[in-house]
């Protein structure tokens, strides 16, 4: 086993790991923010809201994330030359980068999977509780905020923890659109040094550690949250 390359690449690796982690955190937050309305629309929305929400979740869950990332990055990019004004727009400095597409693809993917989870969670809250809330004179919004959403979240939390680990496992795909995450750094070590297995093994250990931290974090939140409800 050869490990002499580690000191040389440690700064790059730290940067890459940081990029992986903020991509993960931001995409989970944005994705979850989208998943709540997606789940609610499917669980209780009128047909014209429920149907598009269901379709969105089906399409996201039915196609590979790698393909979604490439469609967003290269597919959209291939349309740019037809619209020259895009390069003059204020958004161009952002559209030129690769990470916005990575973040968008990861967020939409998380939203698709969690929209389905939240649908089930919203549906599983007993109707009687909601009716009780209304009987107390809560407004519709207050019923949602104080009864429906917390109960659904408590039910969804164990699943969300697992799904967030799955999201972590999906992040290395962004390396294929030039985002330099921790996986891309390991690839660079392989290219520079022709050492194949060691960087991959270290990478596996790093992902396991992060996955462990995520699981631990969710367990702590779960314990607090569920106790708070009781």
């Amino acid at each position: 086993m050869r490990w002499g390359w580690i000191p040389r690449y440690a700064p790059l690796a730290a940067e890459g790991l940081w990029r992986t982690i903020w991509l993960l955190m931001l995409s989970v937050i944005i994705g979850f923010a989208l998943a709540v309305p997606l789940g609610l629309a499917q669980a209780a929305g009128p047909f014209w809201l429920a149907a598009p929400a269901r379709w969105f979740c089906t399409v996201i869950r039915g196609t590979p994330l790698l393909l979604q990332i490439w469609l967003l990055y290269y597919g959209l990019g291939s349309l740019f030359p037809q619209f020259p004004w895009i390069r003059q727009s204020d958004l161009w400095p952002i559209l030129r980068q690769a990470w916005p597409y990575a973040l968008l693809a990861l967020s939409l993917s998380y939203a698709g999977y969690e929209g389905e989870v939240m649908r089930g969670a919203f549906k599983s809250v007993p109707r009687g509780q909601l009716e009780a809330g209304r009987a107390f004179g809560f407004s519709r919004f207050a019923t949602f905020r104080r009864i429906w959403f917390p109960q659904a979240l408590a039910r969804a939390l164990p699943t969300l923890g697992g799904e967030t680990v799955l999201q972590l496992k999906a992040t290395p795909l962004v390396a294929t659109i030039t985002v330099i995450d921790i996986y891309a750094v390991a690839s660079r070590v392989r290219q520079d040094t022709f050492i194949i297995y060691e960087p991959l093994l270290l990478l596996a250990v790093i992902y396991m550690a992060v996955a462990g931290l995520i699981a631990l974090g969710f367990r702590m939140v779960e314990r607090r949250f569920v106790r708070g409800l009781g």
Partner: peptide
Amino acid sequence: TLETRQAAGSTRAYFTFFLAAGVIYLLMTL
């Protein structure tokens, strides 16, 4: 996915091919 990437790279019609592949995957899963 690789066939799609090859077709897209050779024709530069990235959008068309990735979308078409998405439809095929969706059909498989549905």
